[in-house]
Amino acid sequence: MVITLTWLECGYRNSSDRMVIARCVGPEQFFLERVVFPFELLSFSCPPASELKIWTHGLGGPELIETLAVADLEIEAGADEPPPPERAAAESPKSGGAGSQRPRGLSFSKGNGDLVEAWVSAV
């Protein structure tokens, strides 16, 4: 019996000044563990029902900092796709469109105010 899971594309940014360990645990024995350095962005794929736990090492040993649902970390669908041609023309600096000052890129929603990161590149 083969079970096909729909996976989510997720992103987590370590906004602390300390190295952390990200452990993602999900259904069907899914497990992912990565070291995330300060201000590093971790991109990963996982099943929708997964949970991301962020750990650090304190004086007393490992400490759980936070637990996040991966739905809160999901990368917005279509954020990395170019805009349709009519929208691209309106946002072009040559056209002077309303969006000419707005950068494009990937947006990562972290669900927590201090974990919101926008990864943008100039047009």
Rank of each mutant, 00 (worst) to 15 (best):
T4G: 08
T4C: 12
E9R: 01
E9M: 03
E9S: 03
G11I: 00
G11L: 00
R13V: 07
R13H: 08
N14I: 02
S15L: 08
S15R: 10
D17V: 11
I21P: 02
G26K: 02
Q29I: 15
F30D: 00
F30G: 00
L32I: 05
L32R: 03
E33P: 04
E33L: 10
V35G: 07
F37K: 15
F37A: 15
E40L: 10
L41H: 11
L41I: 13
L42P: 04
F44L: 02
F44N: 01
P47F: 05
P48L: 06
S50K: 02
S50E: 05
K53R: 15
W55N: 03
W55L: 13
G60E: 12
P62Y: 06
E66R: 15
E66G: 05
T67S: 14
L68F: 06
V70Y: 00
A71N: 06
D72C: 00
L73I: 02
I75H: 01
I75G: 00
E76S: 03
A77I: 03
A77N: 04
A77T: 08
G78L: 01
A79W: 08
P82N: 10
P82T: 04
P83F: 14
P83M: 14
P84M: 07
P84I: 08
E86T: 11
A88Y: 04
A89K: 13
A90K: 10
E91D: 15
E91M: 15
P93Q: 07
G96T: 05
A98Q: 13
S100F: 14
Q101C: 15
Q101L: 15
R102I: 14
R102N: 14
R104D: 02
R104S: 03
G105F: 09
L106D: 00
S107C: 11
S109F: 07
K110I: 03
G111S: 06
N112Y: 07
N112S: 13
G113P: 14
E117W: 01
W119S: 07
S121C: 15
V123G: 11
